[in-house]
């Protein structure tokens, strides 16, 4: 009964969340474009699916993804597991948290490699670069980028170093890369930062960070808990431009060698 009541409450809230889109589409269609809405029945049925699906997802998220991220964070950073003692540890030793970094890296890699929007981006990158960027090469590069990013993010939470320093360095790398990267890849690379963090990954990774910040001694969730997603959206930009640069450089070198051969 409590579950049903919760579900109904969330269902009502999601109706409100979807309302702006409905107003936008009907408003523009009827008032600006002055045309009847095509396939009205499909739109209504689709809208009902959206509301019901969103509500189910949010309930499931509360029951599965958030607790899961927190449980894993708690177990992996439990003093008994990390230091082998149940005594209170005052200062976190960053070297003792190897499993945390590995878990973060694996979650980052696993969720990114199967991410549908990344597959779409890889397909388009292959098109823009006229084949020099291979789809699988790019997907693996980005997945490694995200894995490294989230892993570095957990390192930051364990050490409690300020987030902005890492991001600042990341931005500087992006700016330097922008100068040297092939021009056609730049917009795609910038976009890839946003698309790799999907609806399932975001809550799980956020909960992992918050859980870590609450169990690692000396850390405060309000100050140190967030930031993992920022890492996960910065590193793909670096990875995509880096990959494009390397491929570009390799094709240049190859064509130079070919020229030399032809000259002989």
């Amino acid at each position: 009964m409590g579950f049903l009541l919760d579900f109904l409450k969330i269902l009502l809230a999601t109706c409100k969340d979807v309302l702006p889109i409905i107003i936008l589409i009907t408003g523009f269609q009827l008032l600006v474009l002055r045309q009847p809405i095509p396939h009205l029945r499909r739109l209504i049925v689709g809208g009902l699916y959206v509301v019901a699906g969103l509500a189910l997802f949010l309930v499931g998220l509360e029951k599965a993804l958030f607790p899961l991220g927190k449980i894993m964070a708690n177990q992996l950073s439990d003093p008994v597991f990390v230091y082998g003692t149940s005594e209170a540890v005052l200062h976190a030793d960053w070297k003792a948290y190897g499993w945390v970094y590995l878990f973060a890296a694996m979650i980052g890699f696993a969720t990114t490699i199967a991410e549908p929007s990344l597959i779409a981006v890889a397909f388009k990158a292959n098109e823009v670069s006229a084949g020099t960027i291979s789809q699988w090469g790019l997907r693996i590069t980005v997945a490694i980028g995200v894995a490294f990013g989230i892993s570095l993010g957990t390192f930051r939470i364990v050490t409690g170093t300020p987030l902005y320093l890492y991001i600042l360095v990341g931005y500087l790398v992006v700016i330097v890369q922008t100068i040297f990267a092939p021009k056609s890849i730049i917009p795609l690379a910038y976009d890839s930062g946003g698309v790799t963090t999907s609806t399932v990954t975001v809550p799980l990774v956020a909960a992992l960070g918050l859980g870590l910040a609450s169990t690692v001694p000396g850390r405060n969730p309000a100050l140190d808990g967030f930031g993992l997603i920022a890492f996960a959206s910065l590193f793909p930009i670096v990875a995509v431009m880096g990959y494009a640069q390397i491929m570009d450089w390799r094709t240049h070198r190859k064509s130079k060698i070919m020229e030399k051969k032809n000259a002989l």
């Binding site: 889109i21 589409i25 523009f28 269609q29 474009l33 809405i37 095509p38 396939h39 499909r42 739109l43 209504i44 049925v45 689709g46 809208g47 009902l48 699916y49 959206v50 509301v51 019901a52 699906g53 969103l54 509500a55 189910l56 997802f57 949010l58 309930v59 499931g60 998220l61 509360e62 029951k63 599965a64 993804l65 607790p67 899961l68 449980i71 609806t199 399932v200």
Partner: peptide, 30 residues
């Protein structure tokens, strides 16, 4: 957690299905 994961899978697939049926085609056309 398993029950929740099931809800997440069901919810997300319904949600995406709904978007593809109604919202995406209209949004693109507009």
């Amino acid at each position: 957690v398993l029950f929740g994961a099931l809800l997440v899978v069901a919810g997300l697939s319904l949600f995406v299905q709904g978007l593809e049926m109604g919202l995406f085609p209209i949004g693109e056309e507009m």
